[in-house]
């Protein structure tokens, strides 16, 4: 059985302080939901740096190779033509398209990675915890031990920062 506590704050600075407090007490936070990204929250929640930039770099590099390689092959091996006196392997001409496809592949790679990793997409099955989150509510969901020993401490920390609607929920696993 998994137990958790949820509460909302009206001000993100309160949430930030509460989260820091919880972290200092080694309590695990399951998630924080907010209408906009809260600066300074990521290290508190222990998030590792996102790998999206790396995906972008690799996809972009693939784009570069595909674009430059294909143009080279088409114009030197497959069907070389004399166009405007340019050499077959006309590197300067190949650059613009190579650049564009690098950017295109990088963008596609990253967007795909973002949507897949976050499991977002049209028709994604997500429970909307509270409709007011996308408006002005900052929600924190804290994992609680089964025994219930942490309940009091967590509630105290949350109340100190003026959390509202503190609810303890249980899910059968």
């Amino acid at each position: 059985m998994r137990r958790y506590i949820s509460a909302y704050f009206e001000d993100e600075e309160n949430l930030l302080r509460a989260a820091k407090d919880l972290k200092n007490n080694n309590i695990s936070i399951q998630d924080v939901l907010s209408p906009f990204p809260i600066h300074g929250l990521d290290p508190i929640l222990g998030f590792k740096k996102s790998l999206i930039p790396t995906v972008g770099f690799i996809s972009g590099a693939i784009g570069t190779i595909v674009a430059f390689g294909f143009q080279t092959w088409a114009f030197t091996v497959d069907y070389p033509l004399f166009i405007g006196g340019k050499p077959h392997f006309s590197i300067p001409s190949f650059i613009p398209i190579t650049f564009e496809l690098t950017v295109l592949f990088a963008a596609f790679g990253m967007v795909t990675a973002f949507l897949v990793r976050s499991k977002l997409g049209p028709g994604a099955k997500k429970t909307i915890h509270d409709e007011r989150i996308t408006d002005d509510h900052f929600v924190i969901i804290v994992d609680l031990e089964e025994s219930g020993s942490q309940d009091g401490m967590v509630e105290e920390i949350l109340l100190k920062e003026m959390a509202q609607e503190i609810q303890v929920k249980e899910i059968e696993l």
């Binding site: 998630d31 929640l45 998030f47 996102s50 930039p53 990793r117 997500k126 989150i133």
Partner: peptide
Amino acid sequence: FGWTGSAKHWQRHESISLIL
């Protein structure tokens, strides 16, 4: 796309916005 406002999603969102 099922957006929930989750902090991890925001982190990725900021990252991808900056790189885009």
